Amino acid sequence: MSTSPVGAHSGRARAYRFAVAARVLLASAGGYGIAASASALLAVVLPGTRAEAVSAALIASFAIMAAVVIWVFAARTVGRAALVLGIVAALLTVTLWLAGAFQTGSFT
């Protein structure tokens, strides 16, 4: 005979489903944001012609997205994953700004 009420099991299942849904959303949106920012940074800083740098950055973005998705699901908590992705996104944005990517005419 079970000592736990039916509502407690339902609450745990609901919390687990919410955590998985949050990780899926974080992995897809955060992974896309990190991959796009890293790709833009690589396109700006890689040597060679512009076409070669953009192509290499685009290819690298697929690996970056996959790594972010794997890491989000491997993180201990959803909050920790969100915090780390936020810090990485902020660092990439600052680095892009320092590299001059936000100046008018920098991609011409």
Rank of each mutant, 00 (worst) to 15 (best):
L26V: 06
V78S: 00
R17E: 11
T49D: 13
G33I: 00
A74R: 15
V44M: 15
G48P: 07
V24N: 01
V45F: 03
G48H: 05
R76K: 15
T77G: 10
A67F: 12
R23V: 12
G11H: 03
T77F: 13
I59S: 14
A13R: 10
A8G: 01
I64V: 15
V45K: 14
A57K: 05
I34R: 00
A56T: 12
I59A: 15
F62K: 03
A35P: 00
A53H: 04
A51L: 05
S28E: 01
A75C: 10
I64C: 10
R76V: 09
A43H: 07
A57W: 10
Y16W: 15
A22D: 10
I70G: 03
L42K: 13
A56I: 08
V72W: 02
I34N: 01
L58G: 13
T77C: 10
L26D: 01
S39H: 01
A21R: 13
V78C: 07
L46W: 14
A53E: 09
I64T: 14
V72G: 09
V78W: 05
V78A: 00
F62D: 03
G7Q: 02
A51D: 05
V20C: 11
G33M: 00
V24K: 03
S39D: 05
R17H: 08
G31V: 01
A66H: 02
R12G: 02
F62P: 00
L42N: 08
A66E: 06
S39Q: 02
I70S: 14
A57I: 11
A56C: 14
A74E: 09
S10K: 11
A57Q: 04
V45C: 07
A60P: 04
L25F: 09
G33C: 12
L42T: 06
W71A: 13
A38W: 01
I59Q: 14
V68C: 08
A22H: 08
A27Y: 00
S61G: 08
G30R: 01
A67R: 11
R23T: 06
W71Y: 14
G30L: 13
V24M: 08
